[in-house]
């Protein structure tokens, strides 16, 4: 029994070693990579071999790739010109944090109904825009029909003198975000959506900090101030 077990262990370890070494043919390589997703024993064996052999990587002398390669990588990540302009619609980590916004939306809708004199005509979509870092809610978007929305401030945010807040949205299948115009801190803004497809669940909204006349590129370039996505309110 023990021998059999040891035999199987050895086989697994040899497979892991040849995978890391690189001598497995294409078929077995693919099989190993698929198994790594669920086979903890194989994964541990592969990890151990990666660590054993890694120092050999130093045998290949470092070489500078061509100067344009980083730009190419950056282009593949999403359009971007300014260094600090990670496409917000690609920021997966951000969206993870936003699932809490669904709950926040419900709570804030309740609060709005109770304490604010918002004309209530049973909104069908609601978006809570939160600050990306601390997730504190800053604005609510209310859509009572699918053709216009109201952006309602929950407080006054400070915007540097030479900057403006720009309002953006992006539907699930859209190529890029669309500007909904500039926003003044503390003011409710009504935005017609007639030139856009109807609102949908999960549609993204954000406010970014741009130059005084808005983004020159037609795409968000400045840091995100508030962000959220549409939830259907029944």
């Amino acid at each position: 029994m023990n021998d059999e077990h040891d035999g199987a262990q050895d086989e697994l370890d040899t497979l892991a070693a040849e995978y890391v070494l690189g001598t497995l043919a294409a078929g077995p390589r693919t099989e190993v990579e698929q198994r790594l997703g669920h086979d903890a024993e194989l994964r541990a064996a592969v990890d151990a071999w990666e660590q054993r052999l890694e120092p050999l990587g130093a045998l290949a002398p470092a070489q500078a790739p061509s100067a344009g390669l980083w730009r190419r990588i950056e282009r593949s990540l999403g359009q971007s010109t300014a260094p600090d302009s990670t496409s917000w619609w690609n920021r997966l980590a951000l969206w993870r944090g936003l699932s809490a916004a669904g709950l926040a939306a419900t709570l804030i809708l309740g609060a709005l109904l109770l304490i604010r004199e918002v004309p209530v005509s049973t909104p069908s979509y609601l978006v809570v825009l939160v600050a990306p870092l601390d997730k504190s809610p800053g604005w609510v978007i209310q859509a009572s029909d699918q053709q216009s929305i109201r952006l309602i401030p929950l407080g006054v945010v400070e915007v540097p003198q030479d900057k403006a807040l720009q309002f953006w949205t992006k539907g699930k299948d859209w190529q890029a975000p669309v500007s909904l115009g500039l926003v003044k801190p503390g003011q409710t803004l009504q935005v017609p959506l007639d030139s856009l497809p109807p609102l949908e669940s999960e549609q993204l909204f954000e406010l970014t900090l741009e130059g005084p006349n808005g983004s020159a590129t037609g795409k968000p370039t400045g840091p995100i101030q508030f962000i959220g996505r549409a939830v259907k309110v029944l």
Binding site: A62, Q63, A64, P65, L69, W70, I73, E74, L77, S80, P83, D84, S85, T86, W88, N90, R91, L92, A93, L94
Partner: peptide, 15 residues
């Protein structure tokens, strides 16, 4: 989602 961090990694490890 910090793209500058990726760029620094690229500068550090790219060669």
């Amino acid at each position: 989602g910090d793209r500058q961090a990726l760029q620094r990694l690229y500068q550090q490890e790219g060669p």
